[in-house]
Amino acid sequence: MTGKDIPGLLEAKDAIPAGSKVNVTFLGNEDLAMRIAASKAVIEAGFVPVPHISARRLSSEAQLEEYLGALQEIGASGHVFAVGGDPAIPEGPYEDSLAVIRSGVLQKYGVREVSIAGYPEGHPDIPGDVLWKALEDKSKALSEQGLDATILTQFAFDTTPVVEWIREVRTRGIDTPIRVGTPGPAGIKRLLSFARRFGVGANTMIVKKYGFSLTNLMGTAGPERFVSELGDLLAEDAGSGPVSLHFYTFGGLKATADWARAFSADTAL
């Protein structure tokens, strides 16, 4: 959710299992008050906030400490998601999320678990070898500092690169739990727009496999095929380690929560 999504959270709260993690974004057009208000709303709704820390958007260490201090005051600093962020040029001292992790500031404010980014289909602006080194370095740094870690991936439409990437993560000796980014149900045009923005593969073969109809862009699509196939493939792979889902709520919090609840009920039958 973003800082503007509090009404959507309240609308969806009865459909979301108590204790679920809800990520709170760090957008350039939102301020500290909005981020803190959103994290507080997550707690009051019975969930666990995971506020984002966008490293390159931080202008100073003082700004990071102010943010973490405000989160700690409301009991929302235990879990964070450290990511590099969009600006090509850092606005302050942190070139990437690894710099934030290595700063030692997180522990001062009660951070216990740090989510870090994973890119099964690569990143449009970062070479693959750089991504792998960053993942290894961040995993090592978190382990050395005694912080728990979770890898949270960019969303995907195709299970093949996701499963291959998970195997490579484990081959490299990283046993961190992985949460696979999964688009919640949304309009097809909206999903494809986000895919283009984030460099996610969305060619004709993949969108057909996912369930899109390119002849009806006004329709909607959900992740039924993706989630079912991913579950089947991982069940066949004893070495995949702990893997769960992270939903990107492009179509709204309630639509995603309703879908997940219905899908869980159907698959339990």
Results as ranks from 00 to 15, higher is better:
residue 268 A to D: 03
residue 266 D to A: 12
residue 163 V to S: 08
residue 52 H to N: 10
residue 240 S to R: 14
residue 73 E to W: 09
residue 220 T to H: 15
residue 33 A to H: 13
residue 140 K to V: 01
residue 177 P to Y: 04
residue 202 A to T: 09
residue 129 D to Y: 08
residue 151 I to K: 13
residue 126 I to W: 01
residue 85 G to C: 06
residue 209 K to P: 00
residue 257 A to D: 00
residue 235 A to N: 11
residue 66 E to A: 12
residue 230 L to M: 06
residue 167 R to M: 00
residue 48 V to G: 06
residue 65 E to D: 08
residue 260 A to Y: 02
residue 252 G to K: 04
residue 32 L to C: 08
residue 179 R to W: 05
residue 157 F to M: 08
residue 131 L to W: 07
residue 183 P to C: 07
residue 141 A to Y: 10
residue 238 A to C: 06
residue 7 P to V: 03
residue 211 G to S: 02
residue 160 T to D: 09
residue 226 F to Y: 15
residue 112 R to F: 09
residue 30 E to N: 14
residue 183 P to V: 03
residue 163 V to E: 02
residue 186 A to D: 06
residue 6 I to T: 13
residue 262 A to H: 04
residue 53 I to W: 08
residue 266 D to R: 10
residue 198 F to W: 12
residue 253 L to M: 12
residue 18 A to V: 12
residue 164 E to G: 13
residue 240 S to D: 07
residue 240 S to G: 13
residue 192 L to P: 03
residue 165 W to V: 13
residue 26 F to N: 03
residue 178 I to L: 09
residue 122 G to E: 00
residue 160 T to K: 11
residue 112 R to C: 02
residue 207 V to H: 05
residue 217 L to D: 04
residue 190 R to Q: 11
residue 204 T to D: 00
residue 242 P to L: 01
residue 212 F to Y: 06
residue 3 G to I: 02
residue 17 P to N: 04
residue 171 T to F: 05
residue 32 L to N: 08
residue 84 G to L: 07
residue 193 S to G: 15
residue 49 P to H: 08
residue 157 F to W: 05
residue 193 S to D: 02
residue 216 N to R: 14
residue 109 Y to W: 11
residue 38 A to S: 11
residue 179 R to Y: 04
residue 180 V to A: 05
residue 224 E to T: 15
residue 106 L to D: 07
residue 89 I to N: 11
residue 217 L to Y: 06
residue 62 A to R: 15
residue 82 A to G: 12
residue 107 Q to T: 14
residue 154 Q to H: 14
residue 102 R to L: 06
residue 255 A to G: 12
residue 105 V to T: 15
residue 226 F to Q: 01
residue 131 L to A: 12
residue 83 V to G: 13
residue 12 A to G: 07
residue 91 E to T: 09
residue 218 M to P: 09
residue 127 P to R: 14
residue 157 F to N: 06
residue 44 E to W: 07
residue 84 G to I: 04
residue 182 T to V: 13
residue 194 F to Q: 02
